[in-house]
């Protein structure tokens, strides 16, 4: 972003644009955190690595797709590349999410939450370091090939809005509408809400709890993959899988889930955009070095002042 001598309105619009773009990604990741928390009551630490996986799988698929088409030399990108890469990444990450739940978390269904948290940290480290292997993605940063042409769609107050930004802001909105419909209008969604409300009662009412949990993991992982795809598309430069930046992005998304009210799907969406905007407003108008500090400061404030989040309901601990 060019910060020299631009007029205040342009700066504001650009900041809001950046904030909404990254906020949409946070929201998509936060949905996975919040849905898993709603049902299993634990923080799926490995979720940020599913997001990383999504970005890297997008890179792999995009590189392959362009090679198939010979587009690197021809200059054109095939039209089908964007949906194919996106769906491929979502499918693959959904599978990985399913496997993580089956192999690592399911054996611990009855264990204390702390054990599940430690397992999640283990899964997270495993995904990062397997991703670093040379046979997988390798230990070096890569750059995402351009799937979309660098076309300007419109100007808002003099700020250029490329087609990438429209996709990055639009796709999360579309996916979130889809998720709203899924959770509040379908039988699966009803089952998810029932399990989240009271697992045992839901099981007594004939809900297959294990299947609902698996479905939740697949859904959350697919959304994280979509966020990863958008990240790769917008920011192009992908750090190696075990790099700190990935975990920081995932953590900020988690903060978004907490700020919105963990366990609350609409809260996660709201929190995602709030955190994205806060981060970029802080960078633009305060000290850019402290962009991570703002987010964690908000987390600590929310946890101390309103632990249930913006939309959450306070739970009373029963003895």
């Amino acid at each position: 972003m060019d910060t020299q001598s631009i007029d205040p309105l342009m700066k504001l619009v650009q900041t809001l644009l950046d904030g909404f773009a990254v906020g949409g990604m946070y929201a998509l990741i936060a949905l996975g955190y919040t849905m898993v928390y709603g049902i299993l009551k634990f923080i799926n630490f490995a979720h940020s690595d599913v997001f990383t996986l999504g970005a890297w799988v997008s890179w792999g698929l995009a590189a392959r797709a362009l090679r198939l088409e010979g587009a690197a030399d021809a200059g054109g990108t095939p039209v089908w590349a964007v949906p194919v890469v996106l769906l491929g990444a979502m499918l693959l990450c959904g599978t990985v999410g399913f496997l993580i739940e089956r192999l690592a978390y399911k054996p611990l269904r009855a264990a204390p939450r702390l054990n599940v948290l430690i397992t999640a940290i283990g899964v997270s480290l495993l995904l990062q370091n397997v991703g670093q292997l040379r046979v997988v993605f390798g230990p070096y940063p890569k750059s995402m090939p351009a799937l979309l042409p660098d076309v300007t769609l419109l100007y808002v107050a003099g700020v250029r809005v490329p087609v990438v930004d429209v996709l990055v802001i639009g796709l999360p909105l579309v996916l979130m509408l889809g998720l709203e419909w899924l959770i509040f209008r379908t039988r699966v969604g009803l089952a998810m809400r029932a399990v989240s409300y009271n697992t045992q009662t839901a099981a007594l009412m004939g809900v297959n709890v294990n299947r609902v949990i698996s479905f939740t993991f697949v859904l959350g992982s697919a959304l994280a993959a979509a966020a990863g795809f958008l990240y790769a598309l917008k920011y192009v430069g992908l750090k190696q899988p075990a790099d700190t930046t990935w975990v920081m992005l995932g953590l900020k998304a988690f903060v978004a889930a907490v700020v919105g009210g963990i366990g609350n799907v609409r809260g996660a969406m709201l929190g995602g955009f709030a955190i994205g905007l806060l981060e970029f407003l802080g960078v633009a108008y305060l000290e850019p070095l402290y962009r991570d500090v703002y987010v964690f400061a908000v987390l600590i404030l929310v946890l101390l002042l309103r632990p249930a989040g913006i939309l959450g309901r306070a739970a009373v601990e029963k003895v």
Binding site: R113, M248, V255, L289, V293, L299, L303, P307
Partner: peptide, 24 residues
């Protein structure tokens, strides 16, 4: 914060603290 936070929330706060220290 551990007065009010349990388990995984506290974990996240300590992680956030570590990262804030690093950035500062």
């Amino acid at each position: 914060p551990s007065l009010r936070l349990r388990g995984d929330y506290l974990a996240i706060v300590t992680l956030g603290f570590g990262e804030i220290v690093r950035v500062v």
